[in-house]
Amino acid sequence: MIVIAVISMKGGVGKTSATANIAAALAKQLGQGAVGVIDLDPQNSLRLHFGQSNAVTTGLSSQSVQGVGWREVMYQSEYGVDCVPYGDVTESGREAFEALLEEQPDFVYQQILHAGLSEKRVVLIDTPPGPSVYLRQATNCADLAIAVLLADGGSYATIPAMEAWLAEVQAERPDFQSLYLFNQVDGMNTLGLDVIEVVRSHLGKRVIKNVIHSDEAVAEALAFQQPVSIYAPHSQSTRDLDNIAKQLALYLAQ
């Protein structure tokens, strides 16, 4: 099993959509049931990409606080990806869950093992933006972190902070690796292309060669509660995601 944490220092970069769509693209590469996703973001929106009914409110947060494993809340989607949603939770419930995560730094990893997710070939973890107890848990058990960026000044300015965080994790775990992925790239935007060029010149191969282009099919796919590769198989973003999945599969095979 390889655990990939999808992270960002800034909100609104399309991290959850990227997580869901990369997972679906990897499932196409690796086969049905080979990919699992865990939603560690209290927004609890990752499950929507895989068609889970909004009426289902249980998730890993409430299960954890009650001392119950995650297997019972795992949702087996028809898109080849198994999803563990965060779940609807009250403010006090969320605080109790976060306190639990503070107390047990390897809690998520233990739950992955107990829920049978270790049988998967790849598990992706979606995290909320910025440093948090969720990010710490995800990076504690991840083999690889994918930092999602927009090709703009706001995202660019967060890279030093992200690098500082990643360096700290790598100091504790030398085998931990990280990559950068540009999302929602507009090929006609000069600033965006310049940002990508400068980041590539500094970080080299740590920037994933392919980007996810700006494509309205991604937003439409979420509204349709499907991964974009199913909703719009011939779209630009699906092509991008397929290429990224191929690169990741090669990277993970090394």
């Binding site: 300015a157 030093p160 400068v198 970080l203």
Partner: peptide, 16 residues
């Protein structure tokens, strides 16, 4: 690109 946008020259991505 860095000469075009001041932010890109003032912030160095690989400098922690």
């Amino acid at each position: 690109a860095q000469s075009r946008w001041p932010l890109l020259s003032s912030v160095q991505p690989d400098k922690r």
